[in-house]
């Protein structure tokens, strides 16, 4: 279309081209402006609705944001001598939180690995069932951990196991999707080579695909571990044990026990930052190793 217009163009048409270009620019600006306007309207009205449905208002609350941390900090500072003791006291809870995250990452990654291989084109054991396995992963990913955790707490009682299962299910879905994206780009030649020797599906995957994708998988797994530590702390808050559970208890006591809350805050913060740094360092190494 534009080619034919251009080929016919003579100098007098340059003006038309220019004006149509300007019109195009104006239309783009108009659309851009409209999108921006709609976005701003959505944000403002959303803010107003949220403010309206919140127990405390945004503007009154804003001035009080610092109050609670200040209270906790000042009380913790007064009792700073107890702090090391409290850190030791809550250390087992911290270990439990990390254990929940670690086990669920391991189990979730293993399940995600199998699911991803089963749902990758070219690798799947049963190519017809690819869609089914993908839907299973979609659902596993979509269910928030808290839903499974709360239902399991009702059946299994409180403690780390419901949280572990809940996080593992979500991890399997989330990692399965990422893993399968990586596996899609894997070189199929080793798989074919193995197939020619009569290797079973499991052997083909284990020896032909896994070595290719392992660095990426490990890197995703580490990232997931970091996310799962946070998830495990949150689930503790609804009764699944670990640091989150202790945090809720110490908060329920209110003033007078703020030193305990402060100790738990500190442990949680330190752990998250520690594993964050650790995993990002290892992930950098893994991906850089990939490049060389």
């Amino acid at each position: 279309m534009s080619d034919t217009t251009l080929s016919r163009a003579d100098p007098s048409h340059v003006a038309t081209i220019q004006s149509s270009y300007m019109a195009e620019v104006q239309r783009r600006r108009l659309y851009g402006g409209l999108t921006l306007l709609i976005f701003v309207l959505l944000m403002v009205s959303g803010f107003m609705i949220a403010d309206d449905r919140n127990a405390g208002g945004f503007w009154e609350g804003l001035s009080q944001v610092g109050d609670y941390p200040a209270e906790v900090l000042s009380e913790a500072w007064e009792k700073r001598a107890d702090l090391p003791g409290l850190l030791v006291k809550y250390f087992p809870a911290l270990i439990e939180t990390i254990n929940i995250a670690a086990v669920s990452t391991l189990i979730g990654a293993a399940a995600g690995l199998v699911l991803s291989l089963l749902s990758t084109r070219g690798l799947a054991r049963w190519p017809r069932l690819i869609g089914l396995f993908r839907r299973i992963m979609d659902i596993m990913r979509a269910v928030p951990e808290i839903v499974i955790a709360l239902v399991l707490i009702f059946v299994l009682g409180g403690g780390p196991v419901p949280a572990m299962i809940a996080i593992a299910i979500h991890t399997a879905g989330a990692l399965g999707k990422l893993f399968s994206e990586v596996a899609e780009n894997a070189d199929l030649k080793p798989v074919e080579g193995l197939a020619s020797t009569g290797a079973t599906w499991g052997q083909r995957m284990w020896l032909g695909v896994i070595p290719q994708v392992a660095p990426n998988y490990l890197s995703y797994g580490l990232l997931r571990f970091e996310i799962n530590i946070r998830a495990s702390a949150i689930l503790g808050f609804v009764g699944a044990g670990g640091l989150g559970y202790e945090l809720r208890n110490s908060m329920a006591w209110g003033p007078g026990r703020f030193d305990e809350a402060a100790a738990i805050f500190l442990l949680l913060f330190g752990t998250i930052v520690f594993f964050d740094q650790l995993s990002s360092r290892y992930r950098n190494r893994l991906t850089e190793g990939d490049r060389t």
Binding site: I49, N54, G56, F58, P69, L247, M251, F265, L268, F269
Partner: peptide, 25 residues
């Protein structure tokens, strides 16, 4: 790093004190 490290759980707890329960928090 600090804001990320404090984590949504602690932010929720702290902000709920100031803003009360609800979607804004």
């Amino acid at each position: 790093d600090f804001v990320r490290g404090v984590d949504a759980l602690i932010w929720t707890v702290v902000l709920a004190r100031a803003f009360g329960p609800g979607p804004m928090t």
